[in-house]
Design a protein around this nucleic acid. Structure first.
Lengths: 292, 292
DNA sequence: AATTTCGCCCTAGAAAATCTAAGGGTAGAA
DNA sequence: TTCTACCCTTAGATTTTCTAGGGCGAAATT
């Protein structure tokens, strides 16, 4: 029997991907985030790669890592390589029997803004499947398998980005509570509700709409805006509403805005199309339906 | 604490590599060979990929697999992608403190032809490391991490290929046995030794040098040509020698060629440089030293 | 000055991937 | 027909890969 001596192995592919993410995002923690693993996993991958290459790729500092010159010089070829992989994977996915459009959205946006619009989209796109994933942070559309992302964030101005509406905030509460509120000063006697993602909402609104008004934050914090909103409907307190998210509750009368003053946050409800999907008919159809 | 819902995962990278190899080489078995795993591993990777993509990539036939049209359409993008990965990995490897030149060679070539030339190369390339790997089949230089390959095979005419010497074969034996051999007919009384890789050597030589001479193969087979040659030196029988491989044994007088007639096999001792290394100074230096 | 925060490292154990070995089926050869 | 040679599949074992929990050191905050 012929002896087949072991061929020298290339580096593990997953380690390469970890490195690519780490060098692109500038740290292990964000890379771990993108790859949905713990930073420890990234750390191990990078170490394995450094052992394989016999060259240091990152310099470990106390509060993060800094790429070595050599590591930095690898950023471009690896970015190119994984772009190519992504492209190939997209081809692969395009062969599925039912095409699926993958939408990424902030949990609150998905539930409060996107959800009411989905039935319309679903019927218009018969034959396509629709997938909505709630994400805390916007995905990298060039790398990840999403076609469309919808977030309430500061616009970045990258290509494919469309601003649907400026973000404006103002207090909202149940009609019951609203009856007690004549002027902003009356707010001091009420419970204020907070969202964990936007803890500064109250400060921002007060600063512009009622300067001088101050109150120690004492109300409950909610990790999901939807839950906070639900509590607000039940008269648990007053919440700072984001125009796009409370719109339907205002229309239905479940909530009211006791004070007219709306404050712009500099953020916007932004929809972004993945670069490779700009020409897809179905995606553009979805985009058109989101735009109104 | 914020909930981070699971992002839709991309396909496993290793499965992509398995697919790329399978589609390029036209079957699971050769792909398994290139990746140094069993065909079962490839089979599983492909199945995982087909499940992920929800599309069949290969049609299973009784004696092998045939790519589907869709699978075939993915060949190009995946080839491109893994070329890019290879390129990036080469960059990565170039950062090692000690540069290493990786040579792949047929085991017999490595031991009998290359080995005597290595000291010279080693001294000329101080500061470089040299790695020699014995391989039964020539590696894909575009994909694998070898810089130079040296094989005794039919020239393919691909770029980077240099023919060092035509392959010629003829019987060799110890001087002791040679004394008994006056004419080719005397061979019939002797033990014939066979190499497992080139079992047809005897037939080929006989057909041209001594037509009509026939003998039932009865001698031992050796999986390593080097072992066969060693046995030949110990008068265990007569072996068909390949010019490039028995040269030094003939020069030293350990073996002799009892009959002058040399037969060309159509093969050649061929050295091939990896496409990406053609401009490397060290590699060209090695090449020059192999050429004489 | 003390404390908190942040990001990475380390290790042991757990989870998941990946592999091998044995099995089974088909085509062509004897 | 039976044998042989291929090639692919499947079940179980192995190895890789990941997570959790505990630390460390420097910068930012109190």
């Amino acid at each position: 029997m012929p002896v087949s001596p072991p061929r020298p192995k290339g580096p593990p592919l997953n380690a390469l991907r970890a490195f690519e993410a780490a060098i692109r995002l500038g740290g292990f923690a964000p890379a771990a985030d993108e790859l949905c693993v713990t930073p420890g996993a990234i750390s191990q991958h990078i170490k394995a790669l450094e052992d394989w290459a016999e060259a240091p790729l990152f310099e470990r500092r106390s509060q993060g890592v800094v790429p070595t010159d050599f590591g930095l010089s690898l950023a471009a070829p690896f970015a190119t390589a994984f772009d190519a992989i992504g492209e190939a994977v997209r081809h692969l996915r395009s062969g599925a029997e039912h095409q699926t459009i993958h939408i990424a959205a902030l949990p609150s946006v998905a539930q409060l803004w996107l959800s009411p619009r989905l039935p319309m989209i679903r019927t218009a796109l018969a034959g396509h499947r629709l997938s909505v994933t709630a994400l805390e942070t916007p995905p990298n559309l060039g790398r990840e398998l999403f076609d469309i992302s919808i977030f309430l964030d500061t616009p970045t101005g990258q290509p494919g980005e469309t601003i649907l509406a400026e973000d404006r905030i103002f207090p909202v509460c149940s009609p019951e509570i609203a009856a007690r509120l004549k002027s902003p000063e009356d707010l001091l006697a009420e419970t204020w509700l907070y969202d964990a993602v936007w803890p500064d909402d109250w400060d921002r609104w007060l600063a512009q709409a009622a300067p001088g008004l101050k109150k120690k934050p004492n109300g409950p914090h909610f990790s999901l805006y939807t839950v906070a909103l639900e509590e607000t409907k039940h008269s648990a307190g007053i919440l700072i509403g984001h125009a796009a998210l409370v719109d339907s509750a205002l229309k239905s009368g479940d909530l009211v805005a006791p004070f007219g003053e709306q404050v712009a946050t500099g953020k916007a409800l932004t929809v972004t199309v993945a670069p490779h999907q700009k020409s897809s008919k179905a995606v553009r159809q979805v985009l058109a339906m989101l735009g109104n």
